[in-house]
Amino acid sequence: MQRVNMIMAESPGLITICLLGYLLSAECTVFLDHENANKILNRPKRYNSGKLEEFVQGNLERECMEEKCSFEEAREVFENTERTTEFWKQYVDGDQCESNPCLNGGSCKDDINSYECWCPFGFEGKNCELDVTCNIKNGRCEQFCKNSADNKVVCSCTEGYRLAENQKSCEPAVPFPCGRVSVSQTSKLTRAETVFPDVDYVNSTEAETILDNITQSTQSFNDFTRVVGGEDAKPGQFPWQVVLNGKVDAFCGGSIVNEKWIVTAAHCVETGVKITVVAGEHNIEETEHTEQKRNVIRIIPHHNYNAAINKYNHDIALLELDEPLVLNSYVTPICIADKEYTNIFLKFGSGYVSGWGRVFHKGRSALVLQYLRVPLVDRATCLRSTKFTIYNNMFCAGFHEGGRDSCQGDSGGPHVTEVEGTSFLTGIISWGEECAMKGKYGIYTKVSRYVNWIKEKTKLT
C-alpha cells in the first residue's frame, strides 16, 4: 500500500490518463441519441435557420407576430419608411378606419389613436360632414345658397324668414311668412316636400332668348283662358290664391305678392273693366268669414305684352289694390325667389296649380277651390304637342294621358313649387288646347323671366 501511494504521488498524470480511459469505455446513459432527441424537440425550422439574422431580410411573422416588435424591426421587413409607417399605425392600436367614419364618399386613412378623412370636392370637416359648395344638395341650405369668396357655403332665406341657429334652416321672422300653410287642420295635408338634388348652379339658368321682337298675326285659340281631375282644397291650404270678379264672377285667378299687390295673367284683364279681388276665398257660393274683398285701382301688364300681336306672350300683369290686405292664416303671400332659384325650383319637376275653373272641358265651374299636382314636361315634348308657338318664356306641365289639367277660369292662378315646406311661385296658368285632352298640356308663363320686374313694381313704400 505504501508503494502504491508513492507511485500516485510521483505520477499524477498517469492516474488522470487511467481515469479518462475508464470513462470513455463506459456506456453513456444520461444523453439520448440524435434521433430520439429530435422526437422530443420537434420544432419547425425557421426561415433563416442556421444563418445569422443580421444578414437576412426581415420576416413579418418572425419579427412582429411571434413577439412584439419595434418600429426598427418592422422597418427591416418593409425596407421602406412609408410602408412601415402605414403598417405601424394599425399594428400599434388597430384600424381606426374600420367603422368607416368618413361621410359623403370620403376616404379614410388610419393613424395612431386617430384617423384622417380625405374629402371629395365640396366637403370638409373631420368626417367630411361639412358642405362647402352650393353645387351639392344646395349646400344643405333649406332655401338659398351662395358661395363666399373663400368658396364656403353661405345660406340665406327669402323675405319674412331668418336663418336658424344651425345656419342652414329657415324659420319665420314674421307672423305670416310667405308660402307657408298655417291653418292647423290643413298642415297635415301639406304636399310632399321637395329635397334639393345635386345641381350645376353655374349652368342652372337656361341660355334662352326671349323672342321679344317676333311679330306674329293673332292666333285663334280655343278655350285658351284655361282644375280638371283635381281635388277639393281645404280652407287655408292655398292662402296665396285669390279669385278675380268682373263682368262675371271667378273669371280668373291670381296670387298675393304682398298686402297691396296681386300677380295674374295679362290676358285676364281689360282696361276700363272694374275688377274686384277676393282673398281668403274657399267656396265661392258661401260666406265663410275668411274672405277679404278689395278693388283694383291700377293694372300693370308687362311692358312687352301686346294682345294685338299675341294674347299669351309675356302673359303676366300686376294688380294694385285700393287697401292693403290683412295677412292671416287664410290670406298669405306666395314666396318669389330670384331668377336663378325660381328656375331651379321649376326644374324640380312638379308643381301645384289651383283655381275655381271648370271641372271638365266646357263644363261647370268649381264651387270649392280645386288643386292638382302636375309634372313638368320637357321642352321637346311640349313643342311636338301643339302647332302653336311655345315661346321661351312659357313652359308645359300636365299629363300625356289627359284627364287632369287646369281649365277655363283658372287662368292667372299660381303654379307653385314647394321647397322644404315653403311654396314659391314658378308659373302662372296661361293657356292650353281644350282641357285635359290626351297628348295636350297646360301652358304656363315662366315666372323666372319676370321676377325682377315683379319685385321692382310691387315694392311697398
Rank of each mutant, 00 (worst) to 15 (best):
G106R: 04
K347Y: 13
M394W: 12
I334S: 00
E165Y: 07
H289Y: 03
F360Q: 08
D200W: 10
C178F: 00
I309F: 08
T186E: 10
V377A: 13
I454Q: 00
T271D: 06
C18P: 01
C268D: 01
E124Q: 10
E281M: 09
V273G: 07
G412L: 12
S329F: 07
Y91V: 15
K459L: 06
G421T: 07
P120F: 04
V92T: 07
K362M: 13
I309M: 07
K438W: 14
R379Y: 14
F196H: 09
C407L: 12
N138D: 12
V199K: 07
W118T: 09
Q167F: 12
S114Y: 06
N310K: 06
Y305R: 10
Q167Y: 08
T85M: 07
R140E: 14
S448Q: 06
N135E: 10
F55L: 11
N113E: 14
T84Q: 13
V451N: 04
L367F: 15
K39P: 15
T342V: 03
F251D: 04
C28K: 00
Y47K: 02
T445R: 00
L327D: 00
K446I: 01
G122F: 05
L103C: 15
P12K: 10
G94M: 06
C170L: 00
V4K: 12
C18F: 14
P324G: 05
T218H: 10
V56D: 04
L23T: 02
H267C: 02
K137D: 14
S187C: 12
G160H: 03
S217P: 10
A279Y: 00
D223G: 05
G398S: 08
N306G: 04
K440I: 03
Y441T: 10
N5E: 07
N100Y: 11
C382N: 02
Q370H: 13
Q2W: 11
L32M: 11
D232A: 07
E66W: 03
R404E: 04
F55W: 11
T264P: 00
K440F: 04
V416C: 09
Y341W: 14
D198V: 09
I300W: 05
N306H: 08
N5V: 11
E72I: 15
G236L: 07
S329Q: 13
N283M: 09
K188Q: 11
F121P: 14
D110F: 14
V154R: 07
M6S: 09
S411K: 13
H34M: 09
A366R: 05
V183C: 05
N104A: 09
N313T: 09
F78H: 14
D200R: 10
S385L: 07
A164C: 03
I40K: 12
E27M: 03
P101L: 12
L376Y: 07
F144T: 00
N147S: 07
C435E: 04
I112P: 15
L372K: 15
R3Y: 06
S107W: 05
W356E: 03
E82W: 05
I40M: 14
I262L: 03
Q96W: 13
D338L: 03
D322K: 03
V277W: 01
E231H: 12
A266K: 02
T81R: 14
L60C: 14
G363W: 09
R140Q: 14
F345C: 02
I17A: 03
Y201F: 09
D93C: 08
N393I: 02
Y161H: 03
D111C: 15
T209E: 10
T389S: 14
N304D: 14
C97P: 02
A265S: 11
E79L: 03
N38Y: 10
R379M: 15
V447H: 00
G355T: 08
D223S: 10
V227G: 09
G94I: 06
V92Y: 03
I428F: 10
I299C: 06
H303V: 08
Y47D: 09
A266Y: 02
K137R: 09
V326G: 07
R379C: 15
N135M: 14
V359N: 14
T417I: 09
V331G: 00
E231L: 05
V419Q: 07
V181R: 06
V183Q: 10
G349H: 14
N258M: 00
A149H: 09
